[in-house]
Design a protein around this nucleic acid. Sequence first.
DNA 1: CTCGAAACTTATTGACCGATCACTAATCTT
DNA 2: AAGATTAGTGATCGGTCAATAAGTTTCGAG
Lengths: 191, 191
Amino acid sequence: MSAEERRESVIRAAVVEFGRAGYVGTTTASIARRVGVSQPYLFRLFPDKRAIFLAAARHSIERLRRQFEEATEGLGPQEAHDAMCRAYFPMISDRSDLLFQMQMYVAVSAREAEGDEEFASEIRALWAEMWDGIQGRLGGDPVLTRDFFGIGMLINVTLSMGFPEGHRVWDTLNVFDYFSGAEGDGSGAAG
Amino acid sequence: MSAEERRESVIRAAVVEFGRAGYVGTTTASIARRVGVSQPYLFRLFPDKRAIFLAAARHSIERLRRQFEEATEGLGPQEAHDAMCRAYFPMISDRSDLLFQMQMYVAVSAREAEGDEEFASEIRALWAEMWDGIQGRLGGDPVLTRDFFGIGMLINVTLSMGFPEGHRVWDTLNVFDYFSGAEGDGSGAAG
DNA sequence: CTCGAAACTTATTGACCGATCACTAATCTT
DNA sequence: AAGATTAGTGATCGGTCAATAAGTTTCGAG
């Protein structure tokens, strides 16, 4: 297998492992084990653990961005909002991507507190880019944007805390029941 | 200082330190340093690091719960929603509590992946209790509940990622401009 | 003052982890 | 086939960190 192919499989494994245990809590050995290579070999493919995490972050954000763009092709703001909420549910079933996002958010503040400003600003830049893309698809509407990201983040948190399917906390998140039903009365509490 | 008083100051320090660097990334030495005691002495006050984190979680969740309850005393659902959104802003200025919440969310999945089911279920129970309390204050309205928690979680994430005040991501979160502006002109809001 | 308990420290250890080094095996090139 | 480049491994090391053990200081009651 070529180094480039290996690098990609390392990134995929890293999303899973970092998503599970976080930046500090994940050992390079566990990533290597998942890839099926020896632990020292990771350092031939990447300069250090930090670079693996950053590559995983780039991969994960880009993947989300693409999924939301595909889900909203040619739709107006409100339809795009609904389509993106719907697009969230397939992501829940393979939780690793969303769990990684959570770990990414907290890793930013942690690394920044340790002086790694470059780490923080790169992830912020990538994420802000995704934010802009989504806000564009929502016609620049700030309420729709906040509403979508709010639902998304609440799903991420609920998932990360491991509330089982069917728990009452998930009830309000079953967006199929509420989010487009509010369109009729136009009161806008849900967006 | 009595052991009980020390224990409380350890908890306060733990919220700050764990909020900064997460469960694994925080050293007991850093907590001890912030308290002003030696690192081994923490283990006279608590059985292990895990117990310190759990105590901090109990403290943090309880604190949030109380703040939201005080902010909504005697208010109807919609007013309570607005009041709680407003109550979020003082919490932003001393970020440690909200950062700790984020770290708590991801710690649950991490510890659970390592077999610590008790850790996970205790934090879930505490948080679900807070959820119930808030949903009660919102008259049981699932849309208001989801909307409030969505805004809250989005604020937590934005804060954790360190987006500076005034960044365009914060614009949609300036709830004073939007959340009750659905009534009409919305020009009278003060940022 | 004194004595015991409670508060607190210094020294240390065993386990773990990121990273390096030196090496081997396979594949490509001419 | 010889040489060179590429993929990959085993051994190990320096540093870090949670936790333990054993000791010292502070303080309040009699």
